[in-house]
Structures are given as structure tokens and as C-alpha cells.
Design a protein around this nucleic acid. Structure first.
Lengths: 339, 339
DNA sequence: GTGAAAGCGCTAACAT
DNA sequence: ATGTTAGCGCTTTCAC
């Protein structure tokens, strides 16, 4: 491996001079600068960032932890984060927790030993508080993304989940729906709670009774309760519409309905949070509340780098993006308006 | 920061003994082992992998470079790669070249200075040869994934593109199509050439003339030639079916057709390589040749780690996965069989 | 079974 | 404008 000393020897200068050329620091005569640069080229020298990290106590690496790498919301977010990180001179290490606390724990351990300079973190649930405490203990700056954790004060980039859910539900109500089922993610996740709160507020506002029998709670990355859906459909007053708390759940619900021969939107309207990637281009079908995923990632990294460059105590920043409602074909009037 | 010396002092042993406990190497008395472990816990010690990397000359980090992070094929591949890397004791650094040579170059530079132990590499085009030469020069082991590069001998994980394209095209022919347009990726990418070759072979086999006027060449991540599509549709003998070389192109083509009021499959059949993520669950619509994306990533990392652990010269491994054809609704009989 | 010394490749701090 | 010294946190090597 070619080191800074090999270059120094060839150029008849000290290692320090080479270091200064590499980092454009200090005063160097144009002559030696050129000579050193030429020799670095000739010898295919590449600085060893491991060594640099060790002495500078910074790695110029950030880490992004998301909860579902197959979800277009998170991959688009990842793209924004990567663009921002690169622009700001950082590399980005990705991780995928699968909404799973112990995978998340492993990832946090890894990140701690890798000494990344900061972490953009989508917590898998409120239980992530324990991992965030770990990061605090080791003084790793972090920014929460998409989800917050009760009791944890931090910079955050969030969506306006309550408002989005409220508008989506009101949209269904305005079409004439009164029995609206709600397929939610786990209530241990802040976005699930906020979307639930928007849903309930919409009902309240329009004098519709909140019926717990119409509500299902699943994991955000996996809809596995086809039975419960059956039970809801078999109620004496079955729903005429379903509001799903995210894209993955909505797609699963629609697949289930199709298997049962229930047409969307003819027999059942379906709306959800977050768009569905290629699917919405292939066939603009699902009525959704779209969040600016790319900006989530981009702003998240910006906040993180901001935080890294500031004193610890300084006031925290919270960005909350509104969502945009896109009405498409999956929602329509109820077949026979419920009483 | 807590170092190995802090632990050593507390435990009244040398740093070396602590190191041995951490790495489970050498002979240590059960007593000291327990004591050291306890103190590491108490002091929240986390080994600094930067320092370890510097002396061991390995980072236990691998890197995955893909060409389109928003394409479900690549994100699923990434998931497989991550699972395999974690299982084998490596971290995974992701990068996204956007099918863009200069972004790829930046990424390769970064990877070189980060001293990753190996690289899983989806080349953006044949011109990537120059970057691979860079990696060879610096003795970074790499495995090519999804695409090969002429003149570059390396371990590879590939799909059977020719065969997949052949079968997809034959499927269209068997439905009665004789004028089949082909929307391909750039011919500077191996998969585009192989899919073209499968397409042509199918035509030949069934005595259908290859007509260059029916062929378009785009970038794999972006369909931008709506005009050319117009020209093809305006031919005296227009196509009754379109074969798109990947999912992104197919979705764009269908969106274009829809904008022009051309129904799929009623007025135009469309088939493509690679599935479309959530879209195919939402509405099983597109007829596709599906590649085992997760396995691409998983096997790719396995080959890479294999290579890292072997001498340089040893024979190379090439894995070629077949694709599975799934006939869905986007393909049907031509409206009026062309003459 | 344990420790001391040296060094991985680089840069901060202090010379000159 | 350039060089010297020391040290980042760890492991290798050799010694006991």
C-alpha cells in the first residue's frame, strides 16, 4: 500500500508537507505542491481514511437506519439522504431494522463501534428509547426521522400524520361513507397513534361514532390478519370503506379483498398514507396522502450535519412536512349509503 | 472516550489482556476474563473499529453499488446483500450511481479511501471497465452483479437475460403478435445486449423479420422518448405489442400509452423484464420475467466474501440465475392479427 | 497466562 | 514554507 511516506520520499519532502498538499492546509510553495501532486498521481496514491479517522476522531460517515427497505417511502427517503450526505462531504451507511427491535439493537451496536459521526434514525417503536439512550451515552448525534419517541428530545423530521389522516378520512366521509374501517400499524409507533388521532377527529367532527370493532392493529411492514378482516366484513353493519395507515397495509388489504371477490372501489373504498412507487405510475389507482419522502431524507441529513457542527445544548429543530392528498380511483361513493 | 487502556487500568491488567478478552484469543484465566468483561460493561466500553481496522488492514466493511435505488429489483437485491453481509460479519455501505459514470467514479474513489474489504458492483455500462481497473490496481476484490463488462474477468452473479427475453417474446408471438416493438436500455449495458439478442432470436425462430424501426434505445432508469414512441405507433404497420427491457421502462411506456388513450392489453400488449414491487401485488397486471433479486444480492455477497478469503488467482465463479415468466393481464391477442 | 514494545497511516502542535 | 515529535486506539510479536 502506498503511504504518505512513500510520496514524501519520492518528492524529497516530509510527510507533513504531503499531508498539507492533500488537505490544502498551510502554506506550500506552488512548486512543491505541483511536484507532490504529480507524484501522488504517478504512484496512484489514495489517502487512507481509516488512519485519518483515528487521529481526527471523526469518520465523515453518517448512518441511516430505516425500518423497511422494500417500502418505496423509505427508499425514496434514502435517496434524499444519500444526496444530501454526499453534497455535505459524508458517506452514508444504510441499515434496515425490519421494524424489529433486536435487529435495531444490533445495528446500533455496530454503529457505535464504527464511530460514525451521526445517525439518521427511524425508530422501530417507542421501545427504541433504550437505543437512543445508548447513543446519548456515547454522544453520537442523531436525528429522528418519520417517527418520534415519547420522552426523547431530539431534532426531528416528521410528517403531519394527524392532518393527513384527518383529510383522508374526511374525504371518505364526504363521499358518503359512515362505516370506515381503520387498518393501523402498531400503536407503539408514533405515526400510528397520530394517524389514529386524525381518523377519530374526522369521525367526531362529522358526528360519526368511533367503533373499536372497525379498527385493526398490525405491523406496518406486514399485513397478516386476514381473519380479522373477515370478522370486520361480517359485522352486522360492515364498513363501506377502509383507511389503511400506510401503503404496504393498503396493498395487502386490497389483495385480500380481491381474493374474496370484493371490488375496489365498487364494493369497498380504500385510501391510505404514502404512495406506492411504480404502482402509482403503472395505474394511478390508490387514493393517498403523499409525504415528501425525498425531502424527509434530505432535510434529515441537513439537520444532522447542523447538529454535528453545533454545541450540544443548542435548541433543537423540528421540521414537520405536510402531506398532499391525491384522490384517485380507489375511493368512491358507498354502494348503498349506510344508515 | 473509553479506551482499552481505561479498562486495563481498572482491571489491573495490561491492555493486551483486555484485547485478548475482546477477541477471544489466547489463553486467559476464567477469573480475569470475567473481571475484564464486567468492567467493560460497567464502563460502557465499545471497541473502536477504526483503530482496529488500521492495524489489521481490514475494515470488515463491504460496499454495494447499484444503479437505481428506486427500482424494486435493486432494493430487493440490496436487502439480500445486507442480510448476507450481516450474517458473514460485515457491514454494508450502499451507493447509488443512477446509471451515471461520473457518479460511479466518485463512489469508487470514496470506496478506495474507505478501504472496504470488497465491492459488489453493478456497473453502469461497459465504460465502467475503467473503474474496475482502478479496483484491480488497488487490489480491492469485487464481484460483478446483474451486468458484466466485456474484457473484465471477475466473479459474477447474472440473470439469464437472453433466455428470459426469448421466452417473453415467444409468449407474445404465441398470442399472435408479429409486429413487436422493443424498448431497450442502452446497448452499452450487457443486459440490454443480451435481452436484445433473445428478442431477435425469438423473431428469427418464428420467421418474423427483425425491423430496426420497431426498436428504441433508452436509459434503463428513465424513459424519455415519448416522441419516438409516437413515430413507432405511426408506422404503416404499427406494433401490436411492446417488449420493454425492464420494469421502469415498461411502466413509463404504459403511462405514455394511457395518456394517448391506447388501452393495454386491448389495443397494445406489454411485457417486460423484472417485476414491479408493490404494483404487482396491488394489481397483478404486468406480464413479466422475474429475476430472483434477493438471491442476486445474497449470492453476490457470498461470492465476494469467498473471494476475499481466497488467493487472488483462483478460478472465478459465475452464477447465472434463470428468470421465471409470469403471464398476467397486460398481454393478450392482437386486436387484429397483423398480416 | 500475561505484559512490553513497536507500529498501522495519518495529522496537531510546535518548531525552525 | 517546511520539518520533528508525539500520539490517535488497537493488535502483532516476542518475551517471560
Amino acid at each position: 500500500m502506498v503511504t504518505i511516506y512513500d510520496i514524501a520520499k519520492q518528492a524529497n519532502v516530509s510527510a507533513m508537507t504531503v499531508s498539507r498538499v492533500i488537505n490544502n492546509s498551510g502554506r506550500i510553495s506552488a512548486n512543491t505542491r505541483e511536484k507532490v501532486k504529480r507524484i501522488m498521481q504517478e504512484m496512484n496514491y489514495v489517502p487512507n481514511s481509516t488512519a485519518r479517522s483515528l487521529v481526527k476522531q471523526e469518520t465523515k460517515m453518517l448512518s441511516l437506519l430505516i425500518t423497511d427497505i422494500t417500502n418505496p417511502f423509505f427508499t425514496t427517503l434514502a435517496r434524499g439522504a444519500e444526496d444530501a450526505a454526499l453534497k455535505l462531504g459524508y458517506k452514508l451507511l444504510f441499515g434496515n431494522s425490519d421494524e424489529n427491535l433486536s435487529k435495531e439493537r444490533e445495528y446500533v451496536d455496530m454503529v457505535l463501534s464504527t464511530r460514525v459521526d451521526g445517525l439518521l434514525f427511524a425508530p422501530s417503536s417507542d421501545a427504541s428509547a433504550e437505543h437512543l439512550a445508548m447513543l446519548r451515552l456515547h454522544q453520537i448525534p442523531f436525528v429522528l426521522i418519520d417517527r418520534e419517541v415519547p420522552g426523547v428530545e431530539a431534532d426531528m423530521v416528521l410528517g403531519d400524520n394527524r392532518d393527513g389522516a384527518l383529510r383522508l378520512t374526511e374525504h371518505l366521509i364526504s363521499l358518503g361513507h359512515k362505516r370506515i374501517a381503520f387498518v393501523n400499524g402498531s400503536s407503539t409507533v408514533s405515526t400510528a397513534r397520530e394517524r389514529s388521532s386524525g381518523y377519530r377527529e374526522a369521525l367526531l367532527k362529522h358526528g360519526i361514532r368511533y367503533d373499536p370493532e372497525l379498527v385493526m392493529e398490525c405491523r406496518f411492514n406486514h399485513f397478516d390478519d386476514s381473519d380479522l378482516l373477515d370478522r370486520i366484513l361480517a359485522l352486522s353493519e360492515p364498513p363501506t370503506a377502509i383507511f389503511a395507515a400506510n401503503n404496504v397495509l393498503a396493498v395487502s388489504v386490497i389483495a385480500c379483498l380481491r381474493d374474496k371477490g370484493i371490488g375496489v372501489p365498487e364494493q369497498m373504498s380504500v385510501a391510505c398514507f404514502e404512495d406506492v412507487g411504480l404502482a402509482s405510475r403503472l395505474d394511478p389507482f390508490l387514493t393517498v396522502a403523499v409525504q415528501p419522502a425525498y425531502e424527509f431524507g434530505y432535510r434529515g441529513i441537513q439537520l444532522l450535519v447542523d447538529r454535528i457542527n453545533r454545541k450540544d445544548g443548542e435548541e433543537r429543530q423540528v421540521v414537520r412536512f405536510p402531506s398532499e392528498m391525491i384522490v384517485r380511483k380507489s375511493t368512491g361513493k358507498p354502494r348503498q349509503p349506510s344508515s
